[in-house]
Simulated assay, not measured.
Amino acid sequence: MSTVPSPLDAHIGFWLRYVSNHVSHAFATKVEGHGVTVAEWVVLRRLLGTGATAPSALAEELGLTRGAVSKLVDRLLAKNLVSRAANRGDKRFQTVALTPTGREIVPRLAALADANDAEFFGHLSAEQRTMLMGLMKDVVRRHGLKDVPVE
C-alpha cells in the first residue's frame, strides 16, 4: 500500500526556511554594503553589549568554535573594527573590544537590521509580531536551541 507524501508547502519548516532565507539574504546584502558580513555583525553587536570579552567567551555565547571566532576577529581586526589586548598577568589570555570605528558602525548596522525587519514584518500588527516572536522563542526553549544564527 502506497501513501502519497505530503507536499513541501504543507510543512511549517518549509515556510520558516522560505521566509528566513529571504529575510537573511536581504539583511546580508544590506550589511555587506557597509563592508561587514552577517557573522561579523553578530560579533560586533555582541561586543557592544558586553564590552571587552575573551574570544573563548564569544565562542561559547555564539555557539561557534574558537577557530571560527578567531577567524572572525582577525577579519574585524583587519577592518579596524575591533582591537585585541593581552592580559598583563598572562599574555596568553586576550580580550577583544570594539574600536571607536567599531562603536560607530554598530548603530548604523542595527538600523539596517531594524529596517530589514520592518521591510518583511512591518505589515503585521504589533500584536502579531509579538505573537510570532513568542512562538519562535517557545520552539527555541522547548528544543534547547543555543547557537546564535550567524549565517
Rank of each mutant, 00 (worst) to 15 (best):
R46C: 05
D138M: 11
W15Y: 13
S83V: 10
L77T: 07
E60D: 10
V43L: 13
S56Y: 09
A86Y: 08
L109G: 01
T101G: 05
Q94K: 14
Q128I: 01
T37L: 13
L124H: 04
E40M: 12
P100T: 02
T101Y: 08
G134L: 08
V4S: 12
R92N: 08
G134D: 00
A86H: 09
A28G: 08
F27D: 04
A28I: 01
K30L: 10
L44Y: 11
L64G: 02
D147N: 06
S70H: 14
A111K: 13
V140R: 13
H11W: 14
T29Y: 03
H143K: 15
T50Q: 14
N87S: 15
L44E: 09
D117M: 12
R103P: 00
H25P: 01
V73W: 00
K79C: 05
E61N: 04
V106Y: 03
I105M: 05
D117T: 05
S6Q: 14
P107S: 03
N21P: 00
F121E: 01
F93I: 15
T95S: 07
A39P: 03
E104I: 03
V42E: 06
Y18I: 05
V43N: 04
S70I: 06
R45K: 15
L64Q: 15
S2G: 02
Q94T: 13
A39K: 14
R66C: 01
S20V: 04
R108G: 02
S83T: 14
E60G: 09
L58W: 04
R45V: 06
N80K: 15
I105T: 02
I12W: 13
L48F: 10
T37C: 02
M131P: 00
L135Y: 08
P149K: 07
L72H: 10
L112Y: 06
I105A: 00
G134T: 01
L72C: 13
G67I: 12
P100M: 03
H22I: 11
T50S: 15
A118H: 08
S125A: 05
A28H: 05
M131H: 09
V19L: 14
K79R: 15
P107C: 10
V38Q: 12
G67F: 14
R84A: 09
M1V: 12
F120E: 00
V96Y: 01
F14S: 09
L145A: 06
V4C: 07
R108W: 04
T95K: 11
T130P: 01
S6K: 15
R46S: 06
R66Y: 08
V69P: 12
R103D: 00
D138P: 00
G51E: 05
L112Q: 11
R88Q: 14
R75W: 07
I105Y: 04
M131R: 15
E127A: 10
A86V: 02
G67Q: 15
G51C: 06
L76Q: 04
T29H: 10
D114L: 13
A26F: 06
A68T: 10
R45I: 01
R108C: 01
V148G: 03
V19N: 05
V19K: 11
R92K: 14
V150Y: 11
S2Q: 11
A59N: 12
T130E: 12
G67V: 07
A10H: 11
R66V: 03
V106H: 05
L98H: 08
L48H: 12
R46H: 11
A111N: 03
T50L: 15
E119A: 06
L62D: 00
G144A: 05
T53A: 14
L145K: 07
R84P: 05
